[in-house]
C-alpha cells in the first residue's frame, strides 16, 4: 500500500522534469524563429558588399561598416573623406564632424547616413569599431617590425559580406 503514493510522487517528478525541459526547448525554438525572422533588423550595420548587392534606396538611412582603406583618408578642415571597404567592395564616405579616438586607416568603422546620387555615403555619425586584440604598444610595434602583423579583416572589424 505504501509504495502507491511513492510511485505517484516519482511520476509527478518526471512530469515536472518533462514540463521544464519542454518549456526550455519550446522557448529555444521560438527564440530561434523570432531571431531568424528579425535577422535583418538585428544587424547593426551593412557591409559595402550588402550595399553593392542589395541596392539600398538612395534616400534610406542606414549604417555602413567596414575597414577604413589605407591611404584613403583626406581631411579638409572638419570634413573627412575616406573609403570603407570589406575587401570585396568599397564605398566612399564623406563626414563632417569630430572623429572618435580609434578612427584610423586600417581600423574598423561604422558610419550612419545615406547614399547620395553619386553613390557616396554622406555620414552624420562615425563610430570606431574596436577589434578583439589587446596588446601593449611595444608588442604591436615588434609584430609590425618582424612582419608578423596580419592586416586581415578578421583581425579588425567582424565583417560578413552578403550575410
Amino acid at each position: 500500500m505504501r509504495d502507491v503514493p511513492m510511485r505517484r510522487g516519482m511520476k509527478r517528478k518526471h512530469k515536472r522534469l518533462l514540463a521544464v525541459l519542454g518549456l526550455v526547448a519550446g522557448l529555444g525554438v521560438a527564440a530561434a524563429l523570432v531571431l531568424t525572422a528579425f535577422n535583418d533588423n538585428l544587424v547593426f550595420f551593412h557591409s559595402p558588399s550588402d550595399v553593392a548587392e542589395k541596392k539600398i534606396a538612395a534616400d534610406k538611412r542606414f549604417r555602413i561598416g567596414g575597414l577604413v582603406e589605407a591611404g584613403s583618408v583626406k581631411k579638409d578642415g572638419l570634413t573627412t573623406e575616406f573609403v570603407v571597404t570589406d575587401l570585396r567592395h568599397a564605398v566612399p564616405v564623406v563626414y563632417t564632424g569630430m572623429l572618435p579616438d580609434l578612427f584610423r586607416e586600417g581600423q574598423g568603422v561604422v558610419a550612419n547616413g545615406k547614399l547620395d546620387a553619386e553613390g557616396r555615403f554622406i555620414a552624420s555619425e562615425v563610430l570606431a569599431k574596436h577589434d578583439e586584440n589587446y596588446m601593449p604598444p611595444e608588442v604591436a610595434d615588434a609584430l609590425k617590425k618582424s612582419g608578423q602583423w596580419h592586416e586581415k579583416p578578421g583581425d579588425h572589424a567582424k565583417l560578413k559580406p552578403g550575410s
Partner: peptide, 18 residues
C-alpha cells in the same frame, strides 16, 4: 550579427587574443 561590440577575445577557438 554585425555588432559595434567587438567579438570574443578570451574564449576563442584560436586561443585568447589578449
Amino acid at each position: 550579427w554585425n555588432t559595434l561590440h567587438q567579438p570574443a577575445s578570451v574564449l576563442t577557438l584560436e586561443g585568447p587574443k589578449i
